[in-house]
Design a protein around this nucleic acid. Structure first.
Lengths: 182, 182
DNA sequence: GAATATATGGAGTAACGACTTCGTTTACAA
DNA sequence: TTGTAAACGAAGTCGTTACTCCATATATTC
């Protein structure tokens, strides 16, 4: 692959992440314009819009997985779990599409993105069970509902355009519910 | 207004509620087809697609407000609050657009829909403060974050296509967080 | 039951978005 | 440096969608 092609591919990915992060219904032309390339170049690298979206989504999921794996090395599993949870919610508040994207990952996405989604959820599950082992999170909470809660908080924060203080108080309520003994 | 016009208007509203409930990106033709009328008829009653969406949204918000007011008459405010919360989440799970709609209500909607949104939130606030007075909900929780939690749970449940048991366990976690003393 | 104002539906129009074509340019090898 | 395969961008095509026009039909009034 030629050097300029590789360069352009990267620039298109970056631009797409940005554009679709702000407006999931953005057009391919918008991406091309921000990337500083012609429309045809976008389509040469990603034959359909769906494939482009999927590539962006996969990248995001992989980054989240990496962050979870990194935190899994921490010596305070409880803190690590809540930090990850908070980060996911915060980021999705500023990037409108991540909730949309996370959703699509579980549902109607291509194999690559689905695999990335599975990887991310596995890493999240690792954080959760570690936090439960040290008694930071109630042990009767299962992965499915805790994950749903995280997605919900993300989408809720994004949708309602929450002020950060409100978002934090909402998270505090959630974390109280996740605490043991309550 | 002629009788057939009134009839058609009602049928269009019903059809629109149904169609947009299943797919927020549905076209006006879809609505017309389901309503059994021509496209022009839809546009005669609702000059733009936005106005049609707004009418549907307003109707939904008003129904929720009425339900909240009805529950406010109950003699068990705690039960009433949680019942309303659960109902909102359940319904939005089966009707994909309600979250989208509720969001739009707070944000970029016309005056009519915004007013309906305010009315609904006021009624919700009534349920909440009553439940707090009887000690069913912690008193340090403010309306803003509790409302955000409800929207989040709704959107999360819809987005993740939760099985009802998982949804119920997620709600149980939330309700634990809303309980006093925890 | 006839007159008429009002409503209706289907065939347009215009704009927009995904995707293609093709003549031009550019990176790399000899 | 030059030849060439690879990559590029601008201008298209095609399908979809919000919205309009107008000839026809129907409810209401007297």
């Amino acid at each position: 692959m030629r050097a300029d092609a590789r360069d352009n591919r990267a620039r298109i990915m970056t631009a797409a992440d940005d554009v679709f992060g702000q407006s999931p219904s953005a057009s391919t032309d918008d991406v091309a314009r921000l990337a500083g390339v012609g429309i045809a170049t976008v389509f040469r690298h990603f034959p359909t819009k769906t494939e482009l979206l999927e590539a962006v989504l996969t990248l995001r999921l992989e980054r989240l997985r990496d962050r979870a794996l990194e935190l899994a090395g921490s010596d305070d599993p409880g803190k690590a779990f809540f930090e990850f949870f908070t980060q996911v919610v915060s980021e999705s508040a500023s990037k409108l599409a991540i909730g949309e994207a996370l959703t699509a990952a579980g549902a109607a996405a291509g194999e690559e993105a689905r695999a990335a989604g599975r990887g991310m959820r596995e890493a999240f599950n690792g954080l959760l069970t570690a936090a439960q082992r040290t008694g930071s999170v109630r042990s009767d909470a299962e992965m499915a509902e805790v994950y749903a809660l995280m997605i919900g908080a993300s989408r809720g924060a994004t949708a309602a355009k929450l002020e950060p203080p409100v978002r934090d108080r909402m998270l505090a309520l959630i974390y109280d519910g996740l605490a043991p003994h309550s």
